[in-house]
Structure formats: structure tokens, C-alpha cells
Simulated scan of single mutants.
Amino acid sequence: MRRLAVTTSSETFARMRGPLAARGIEVGHLPAKEFALDLTRPPTEEFDVGFVYPSRMMEGGVIDARYDIPWVNTREDILASRNKGGVIAALSRADIPVPKTVAVSNPVEDDELVSAVESAGLDFPLVVKPNSTTRGVGIAKAHDVDSLLGIVDHQNLVHDFRATGDKSYLVQEWLPDARDYRIMLLDGEIVGGVERRLSDEARADGRWKHNVHRGADAVGIDVPDEHRELAKAVAETLGIRYLGVDLLESNGRLVVSETNARPTIDDAGKYEDGFFDALAALIERVAKNAA
């Protein structure tokens, strides 16, 4: 039986363990953060393959060197997907529709920022988001120049700390009344999709972020053809084997907002038939190719 290293002990670990065991793959937890580890002693466990490279790059480097296993999603995959600006640039170059976006690398003067926003044809309101955070952390909406510069002041304060690794952020167009989708792919093929919806009460309270970690519901859907083709084009362009593609649909436009190379495995009912068969086959192939 293959042994698969999974560095998270949360929902993904619990949901994949049984189905993969039934397909000859034992799932084991490999802690990749919050540890005190004697590096002069060999590991007490062995793994054939890793699922997704650890989210913390430094600890990931330690784990990777210690176990020397292939990963379904590699360090390069994680870094590429986490860089929201890099994804937008790569997809735009491939003629894949994305929101109008300005990337900012601090320090930048206020007038330079405002000029770049105007030159890009961006109108208020605007969305300001850190370039590499997840779960909607740090994303804000600016209604005018003053609120934009106020949000940027906060970004500048954070970026003043020398230890802050990522000193970039994005300014993007606001897509009104957007429907928010997460499309899941394995080896470039669609294996499931959800629409992330806010309750009527949340909308009435002025909330607009569709992240599940912020209270939105992920409802399984039959992925429409247009959404399927767009998501497949994203996976082909980025070359990432296990990928979540986030789409926004607004006023007849369908654009790619972000990607996620560490997507949570959701309830089985939100995937198409054969999802775990395809996942097991991918894990087996990665292990065999590295042997």
C-alpha cells in the first residue's frame, strides 16, 4: 500500500483518508509547522509521495529535505498559485479573461499609484488585496481616492517592517453583484465545482466577500460549459495538477479572479463521479514517476 504524506490535519485529511484507503493509499499526517524537531535523527515514518507541499516555505524546505519525496503539487506550484499578480499576468498573456488589475510593489508614492489606477481605466469602487494572502485576509473595498489611500497607508505600515516578506499588493476593478465559483481540476480535467453564496442577511449587512472561511456557503453545482472551458484553460496555462480555479461572473462577463494550489477537499457530494479514482490515479503516477 502506498503511503501519502498530508501536511494538514484538518478537513482535507479526514475526508480523503477513507476513500483513498479503499484505493490502496494510506494517508498519514506529516506535521509541517509548530514543531521542535531533532534533524540529526532519521524520520520514524516513511512516505512514498506527498500530497501538497507545505504552506510555510522554510518549514517545507526542512520537511522536503528530510523525507525526499515527490509532491503532487510542488513547491513551485504553491508559489506560482499564491502569487495572485503573477497568475493574473500569466493568464492575461494567454488571453484568458481576468479583472483589470494594477500590481503595486512598495514603496510607491501616492501620486504614482493614483496615476497607475487612472491609466488602467479603473473606476471606483476598487478592490485592494495583498498579493499572497489566502481566505480573503486583508482584502478591502475603496470607494474613492481618500479611502484608497487610507487602505494603502495600512499596507505601507505593514510593509515598513523589515521582516515582511511580501511587499506587494493588487488594485482591481470591482465587479458588482458577482457570482463566485470555485472549479476543481485534476490533471486538467474538471472534477467538481461549487458556487459560494452569501445569505440574504449577510448581503443586507453589506458583506461582499464570498470566502467560505468568512461564512459563505459552498453549494455544489453542475459546472456550465463556459466555466469548464475557462477553468481548463487556466490549468493548462499554469501546469498545476491539482487546482482550484476561482471565477467571477458579473454583467455578462466571466473572469478568473484567483487560483488555489492548496484547495480543501470538500464534501464528496460536491464532486463529479470518479473524483477519488482520479485522485488516487494521480498520486500513483507521481509516486511511480519518481521511483
Rank of each mutant, 00 (worst) to 15 (best):
A142M: 09
L126G: 02
M1I: 11
K270A: 15
A216N: 02
A231V: 01
L175G: 00
L247I: 01
S119F: 06
D225N: 12
A202H: 12
A216E: 05
A94G: 04
A278T: 04
P176G: 08
M16G: 01
T8A: 01
S119P: 07
V137H: 03
W71T: 09
I69Y: 04
D64R: 03
D187S: 14
P176D: 11
D48V: 13
S92H: 03
W174V: 01
V255T: 12
I265H: 10
S168N: 05
M16K: 07
L37V: 09
A65P: 03
S115F: 06
E272W: 00
A290K: 10
F276A: 13
R241N: 13
D222E: 11
V171N: 06
R214D: 01
S119H: 09
D225A: 15
N211R: 12
S132Q: 03
M58V: 14
G244K: 05
S115A: 12
T237A: 14
K167L: 09
E112V: 15
F51E: 03
D146I: 09
R93F: 01
V62W: 11
L148K: 08
W174R: 07
S55N: 12
G215V: 08
D144N: 05
D48R: 03
T8W: 01
A32N: 01
A178R: 14
L248P: 00
D77V: 04
N260Y: 07
E201Q: 15
H213V: 02
L4F: 11
P130Q: 02
G274L: 08
D166E: 09
H210D: 05
V219F: 00
L198S: 02
S92M: 00
A140Y: 10
V114M: 11
G150S: 13
P43K: 04
E236A: 14
M184W: 03
V127D: 05
T134D: 15
V219Y: 00
M1R: 04
D146N: 15
R93V: 04
T264I: 12
V117L: 13
G215D: 03
R82V: 04
T101D: 13
D95T: 02
Q155F: 06
D177N: 11
P224L: 08
L248M: 14
L91G: 04
E34M: 14
G220I: 04
P43A: 07
F35A: 14
